[in-house]
Amino acid sequence: MNSLSPSNKPFFRAPVPLAGVSGLPTPRVNHFTEADYGNFYEPAEDSFLLLDALEADAGTIKQLHPAVAAEIGPGSGVVTSFLAALLAAIHQREGPTSGPTAAVCLPDTHCALLCFDINPFAVEATKLTALKNNNHALQDVVLGDLVLPLRPGSADLLVFNPPYVESADLPDQVTSTGAGGVTSGQGVDRGDGAAPPPLWAALDGGRDGGAGVARRALYAAHRALAPGGHFYLLLAQPNRPHELAELALALYPDQPAGPQRGFREAVCIAERKAGWERLSVWRLTR
């Protein structure tokens, strides 16, 4: 994997690594076929950047000592399984940390994990990936929109690799092997559960430079997080990340300064150029 490149951006803050936690293996996803990836998002450069950023910031996560973590839109489940292994490594679990007998269970992570996805294929895939990576009795998967079903103020750690492509930039037909062609351009909100929107929903970030879903997620995450909790969010350059960071700091501009107004801090901890995409990972602190 590429190394993280610091930049001179005003929002940039170097991640806080943790000695002894590096080079964790990417979770196995070889139980999926090309056909599966018609139904949910195949791990790609953006997913791997998020994994690298989480690992590079393990020191921050250790200090947080999360008890409740959640991933929004887990897709294949690769990030959630990685997060489980990362939390186990942070807590220095005993037993093998990789290989076929490296089982990870809740006591190893000290942390409950919940995964919310609007795509039924993705929640099934997340369960399967957990099992294939020997995660047992560790996470709950829920069909749900963002983290809206989570009790307000209950989460310590949230992770989201959102759909970030502008609707208008998507091809007219995104083919889905499972459910035939899924047509784009039917409006932004796909959370209605009517026609299954498998792959399409994993790409379409809505209008607004593709930041529509990420924008909604800021409000949902702010509500779900406990004070001091972190929200790791991946963004692409056309989403105008700095504008979103400004928004995150003042979600409710009428409120006085404090936790009710918005996130306390918004920093970019990782950046990478992947092909024609420029991606960044942000850590927003409630």
């Binding site: 000592h65 008890a67 007998t101 490296a102 089982a103 006591p107 000290h110 942390c111 409950a112 209950s154």
Partner: peptide, 25 residues
Amino acid sequence: DSDASDGEYGLPEYNDDVMANIWPK
């Protein structure tokens, strides 16, 4: 897994620290 003979690994036992961490939630 044939290589697993040397390292027995089952479900971790009950742990007071884990319980204390989750209890406020």
